[in-house]
């Protein structure tokens, strides 16, 4: 049934992608809360295995740094490494 589907999907509506994005931001904020509690030793115990885990928001920070490094490296080598699809043929 190619090209016969004219339904409008939720994702197609303008603004919904933005809603999704803000949802993600909200989620990160919510997930940061336990670490704040942990700073005051209430409600939640981190029981870290290494010192490095005691840094507040360690996992969140590390995830962000990792992603930035990954994307940065990818961007910088992208031009150098990219070749046409039939490069080897």
């Amino acid at each position: 049934m190619p090209n016969s589907d004219n339904r409008t999907y939720w994702l197609d509506r303008p603004g919904n992608v933005n809603k999704l994005f803000y949802g993600v931001v909200a989620l990160t904020v919510v997930l940061a809360i336990p670490d704040i509690f942990a700073l005051f030793n209430i409600f939640y115990d981190k029981h870290p295995k290494t010192e490095i885990e005691e840094i507040p928001f360690f996992y969140g920070l590390y995830a962000m740094i990792s992603m930035l490094v990954l994307l940065g490296v990818s961007n910088s080598v992208s031009n150098f490494l990219k070749r046409d699809e039939d490069y080897y043929d």
Binding site: V24, V25, L27, T28, L31, A32, D35, F57, F58, Y59, G60, L61, Y62, A63, M64, S66, M67, L68, L71
Partner: peptide
């Protein structure tokens, strides 16, 4: 911690 890891990666 795992959710944090995922969520922040998604954010970036």
């Amino acid at each position: 911690t795992q959710l944090q890891l995922i969520a922040f990666a998604v954010l970036i």
